[in-house]
Nucleic acid binder design. Structure first.
Length: 510
RNA sequence: GAGCCGUUAGCUCAGUUGGCAGAGCACCGGACUUUUAAUCCGGGUGUCCUGGGUUCGAAUCCCAGACGGCUCACCA
């Protein structure tokens, strides 16, 4: 980006910013514009200096990072420098830098990006330190950092200005490191099992593969509306038809639904498909993958989530959906199959019991209220009703039940998996059934997808498929109560300039 | 979408019954060559979220709005 040297100061200028801009102006007058510097060759990271003190003592190193604190003592000044690896202390002494360059420290502020060159030493107090003989200001921070002791607590600021959250809060840095390492671990696991990572379209004419409302956008040149994907499922299964027998994608999907501590409109979904496998094989894959990821990222398969222990060590508990509900309520399996009985049950249990509600919605509410919160230890809930599983193969002997499971842990739903329905005619019937729900007003019913049906007609091998919400898994591994704490830039309303509403519109009707 | 709660200095937070706007850190000035939440002396830097209203007087009470958090509803 271009831009001259006459940038306008922001409107929210205050004394602190004026001071820093004044220092920048002085530096420029001396011909030391920090923003003209294009690089700084480091020899060591902060952590390397500290870890290798034994061999580095007395050696000259070059380090660079953000100035986090300064402690001035007249003719000596200590500073904490933080880079991506950690923190290292710098020592500036007037007898080492000379009067003039020592005075130059006056133009430094906490938050500035600096490079320092000097000998590695240890102070009287035992702190490993770089005694700086050279100092370069590499970028000037024009705004003060959040307070160093309490960090940045304001959640709105933490989300809107995540960079400040990352600078100020160690636990935030850690959470996103865990997130990155978790995804890397999952990739390694799947790669080792022979899966290919692929990328499928985010913009789709038909947004299928899940039951959710899509975002709509428009392609100008083609003059067509497109939907942002709500899942990767149907494209990945096309690839299985094409002979890619083990494929996965880790990518963002977009669902036009509300936000909550467990929902962000865009979130990261892992989907994996394995030919010649069924949902039982996928259970094994799921528990092995998650347990190993926890082990690799945290060093243990056991985590504490919101005060409760969650142990990912396989095998996870398995319980059929109907049994899970009947065990936690006084309902019978029959009451879960008749709309009127379920409605009366909901009424009795204090759940929404509107006659308009679908059977599937009501029984789902019952499950969510009475079963899901109890699923703290990792568990697979299996054999969901077929009508709410339009893409899953049914049991041969129990056509009303799908070969499907959902993994739960910490009281959260982590994903969805099944033996993929590969009978094109049956899939068409399921889509038609969904189309009827849609016509009846269910905006989340699965849309008809003729192109996908065409692919199935060329034969897809029996296949097991899995979807895992990566964000929720990260929540578990980082003990985060809100999904926003594991998404770098969670969805927020734009900050409005608050266009003052025309107050007291005398003489004007709204 | 509904209910409850919150918004005060750059940051973290106090603010009593409606009566001059407060503290710590940061910052500014001064002292200090081994500190590490450095210390010591001096200095308060503000659209009390916004707009109305009540009142002699509003950060405080009332109304409306903005943004956020939590809970519920819908979803993963």
């Amino acid at each position: 980006m271009g831009g001259g040297s006459t940038g306008r100061p922001p409107a929210d200028e205050n004394e602190l910013i004026r001071n820093r801009r004044g220092k920048l102006a002085r530096l420029r007058e001396r011909g030391e514009d920090p923003f003209s510097i294009t690089g700084y060759s480091r020899t060591h990271l902060a952590a390397e200096v500290r870890d290798s003190f034994g061999t580095l003592e007395g050696a000259t190193v070059r380090v660079a990072g953000r100035l986090m604190a300064r402690r001035r003592h007249g003719k000596a000044t200590f500073a904490d420098l933080r880079d991506g690896s950690g923190t290292i202390q710098l020592l500036f002494r007037v007898d080492q830098l000379g009067e003039e360059r020592y005075r130059g420290l006056d133009d430094l502020d906490d938050g500035d990006i600096v490079g320092a060159e000097g000998e590695v030493m240890k102070t009287r107090a035992g702190e490993i330190t770089v005694a700086a003989a050279g100092l370069s200001l590499l970028a000037k921070a024009l705004r003060p950092l959040p307070e160093k002791w309490h960090g940045l607590r304001d959640v709105e600021l933490r989300y809107r200005r995540r960079y400040l959250d990352l600078i100020a809060n160690e636990e935030t840095r850690r959470a996103f490191e865990v997130r990155s390492r978790l995804i890397a671990s999952i990739r390694r696991f799947l790669d080792e099992r022979g899966f290919l990572e692929v990328e499928t379209p985010m913009m789709q004419s038909v947004a299928g593969g899940a039951l959710a409302r899509p975002f709509v956008t428009h392609h100008n040149a083609l003059d067509i509306d497109l939907h942002l994907r709500i899942a990767t499922e149907l494209h990945l299964k096309r690839l299985v038809v094409g002979g890619m027998e083990r494929v996965y994608e880790i990518g963002r999907v977009f669902r036009n639904e509300g936000v909550s501590t467990q929902h962000n409109p865009e979130y990261t979904l892992l989907e994996a498909y394995q030919a010649y496998a069924d949902y039982r094989d996928i259970m094994e894959l799921t528990e092995s993958m998650v347990a190993r990821a926890a082990e690799e990222v945290l060093g243990t398969p056991k985590v504490t989530y919101q005060g409760q222990e969650v142990d990912f060590t396989p095998p996870w508990h398995r319980v059929a959906w109907t049994e899970a509900v009947t065990a936690r309520t006084d309902l019978t399996p029959e009451e879960l199959q008749s709309k009127e009985a379920a409605r009366q049950a909901c009424e009795r249990l204090g759940l929404p019991a509107d006659p308009e509600l679908h059977l599937s919605t009501m029984v789902d509410n019952i499950f969510e209220r009475f079963v899901q919160p109890t699923l703290i230890a990792p568990a697979f809930v299996t054999d969901y009703p077929t009508p709410v599983s339009p893409l899953a193969k049914a049991h041969g002997d129990r056509p009303e039940l799908a070969q499907r499971f959902e993994p739960f842990a910490g009281g959260m739903e982590l994903g969805n998996a099944f033996s993929e329905l590969n009978d094109p005619d049956e899939q068409r019937r399921r889509f038609e059934e969904q189309a009827r729900s849609r016509a009846a007003g269910d905006e989340e019913a699965h849309p008809m997808d003729d192109d996908f049906l065409l692919a199935l007609e060329y034969a897809m091998p029996p296949t097991g498929g899995l979807g895992i919400g990566i964000d929720r898994l990260v929540m578990l591994l980082t003990d985060s109560a809100s999904i926003r704490d594991v998404i770098l830039f969670p969805q927020m309303r734009p900050e409005s300039k608050q266009p003052t509403p025309p107050a007291d519109q005398t003489g004007s009707e709204a």
